[in-house]
Nucleic acid binder design. Structure first.
Lengths: 191, 191, 191, 191
DNA sequence: AATGAATGAGGATTCATTCAT
DNA sequence: GATGAATGAATCCTCATTCAT
């Protein structure tokens, strides 16, 4: 029983199913059929709405980055003081929303996708730039000119912890991860 | 006319071709045929020597880790003093042998493979453990009990820089990468 | 807001779009969706009006043959004398209405369709019979009993020129084509 | 039980099966699977040997044109005198080898293919040029400067008869067809 | 030792067609 | 009258893998 206005619903379902499926498989080697089945529709409909497999993956990636970006912005609003802002950025990255096994797996595979797809590359670059810029902005009042270099190291450290977590098969622990980055931060800003 | 003793030569050629092909493709989505062609033999022979696609990838991975491990050991032999040992470990990771576009791409994909293959997971875990243990061993004389935690952060930072480099399409710069990690090290050990 | 009496308008739009689309594609390999989009409606509506893809093609074919037939009849009305009648038939076939790249492509594909579809076969047979009969009727006063055989040759020559034109990628030239057929006619009737 | 040197055998079988299948279907709308099955192999093997569907069709086309060309050359060798040469060319086109229902259907579809495929277009153009040149060469001693124009008409007439035959569902009659063209020839050269 | 031959399985994609609204 | 929603079927193509030679 077809209804009107299904498009956004279907698209959202496919995006969600894609992230879950990539998380399960641990790689981009998932068929459109599987994704569509998980989203409760035929693969033909998935193609109809997205135009192709790449577009589905890119939509999932955009969604992940959007959620991440929203969480960071939300945390920044709540923060008071530069140090608190930097911590907020770090904690947002390791929140329960983002630092989950399937999402981490998805991230890892987005990096792989970025080596082939220009659009994926662009999206990840935007993410990296934004992370760096957020960190730098928060660090400047604390350490002045060194903010840029330190921001780069903080960003790499965050990504590195993600990568290690991608390997781990244990349950993830965002608090522990945050604590590690904040410890490094303390050293960098000399506290 | 087939020759005797070809096996090690063929295997080495396949391993090399695999890394190159994965580097070119940017993903594990490379066919055995392509790898075999690049290595100058039929795909049937590749199967004959390795038994299957997974085995070929694992051999390439083992090779990469072996080369990395050898380089670290070599650098440690030359080092004198704890600080020098830690720096040697860091510099080995960013040497011209390891920190190359195709090898970095291979690493990234090994992480993906580790989510599926137990053997790949084991290999990467061994690498991580060894890196951590090497760093910790070098750091202990310098910072005592904090060595474990700092080693974890150094290791994550190294991996994070690899990950960022995997995204970059510019030529890689190992010296710059080493400098960043060493700067963080200085902060951590309080110099 | 749907209007009354849309049926003939929609049908005509679809027929026109079909010929154009077949002309562009150069084959019957055009989807109903494309035709419908070109005609400014949904593919579902196209099905509603015609019942299926085959019916759409057949309608386009009928239209083409109808236009051709009308043009021949019109030309015959104007002609005076047997020779003039034969020339009129020939010229009508190469008029600007019929001898156009897209229409020629459509004809060619109708021949293909006729091998599968009985109705298409019937339509083309009717066209051939009528052409032959028209030519024969015009020729009889000029050459008597030989009219049948000569008409057959004239008809085949006309079709052959169409076929050659279907291959050509240059702009078509109806005048030149008519001249060729009329030259052959002259030889046949001995002038 | 795989054997060596199968390639030419497989390719020939596929070409033959393609012509037969296109003849049966009356259109290019035949799947590689059907062709391969008719040729007694898997569709994967067909792809292996030809690289793709288009290549299979082009090979069938090349084969058809080659056979036709060989037959014409053979007939020309036997001919003595200009008139006999022209007749030989005509008769070769309507021989039992070429003027068969399935081959005629294949020809018709090659014309369709030529609208899309550059290579198909090139092949058909070569055929047309050669036919024209052969006819012209034979006609020149008989009618001098008019040879070019007459050759064009003869060629178009031959193609037109093919086209008409493509529509016919009766058994084809090469002798009758030749006779028609030769009758036109007689008129053109004034006998 | 080495390879050409061969295939079954699977996957992306397209499309005609139907149906509820 | 008109359309968005939806799908099953079909098709091309790729690939890992096996086997006889």
């Amino acid at each position: 029983m077809p209804k009107l206005g299904m498009e956004p619903i279907r698209r959202a379902a496919l995006v969600k199913a894609t992230i879950a499926e990539v998380g399960d498989a641990g790689s981009l080697d998932v068929s459109v059929s599987r994704i569509a089945k998980r989203a409760g529709m035929s693969s033909a409909l998935a193609h109809h709405y997205f135009g192709g497999k790449d577009q589905i993956f890119l939509a999932a990636m955009r969604h992940t980055l959007t959620v991440y970006g929203a969480e960071v912005r939300g945390a920044l609003v709540m923060a008071d003081g530069p140090r608190s802002r930097v911590e907020a950025i770090i904690r947002a990255g390791f929140s329960n929303t983002n630092f989950r096994a399937d999402v981490i797996a998805a991230w890892l595979n987005f990096y792989v996708m970025a080596r082939t797809s220009d659009e994926a590359h662009r999206l990840l670059t935007v993410y990296q730039k934004r992370l760096h810029s957020n960190l730098q902005h928060g660090l400047r009042p604390l350490i002045g000119a060194r903010a840029g270099a330190v921001a780069a190291r903080m960003a790499a450290l965050i990504d590195g912890i993600y990568l290690r977590q991608a390997l781990s098969r244990d349950a993830v622990d965002g608090a522990e991860a945050s604590a590690q980055v904040i410890a490094a931060l303390d050293k960098e800003i000399g506290q």
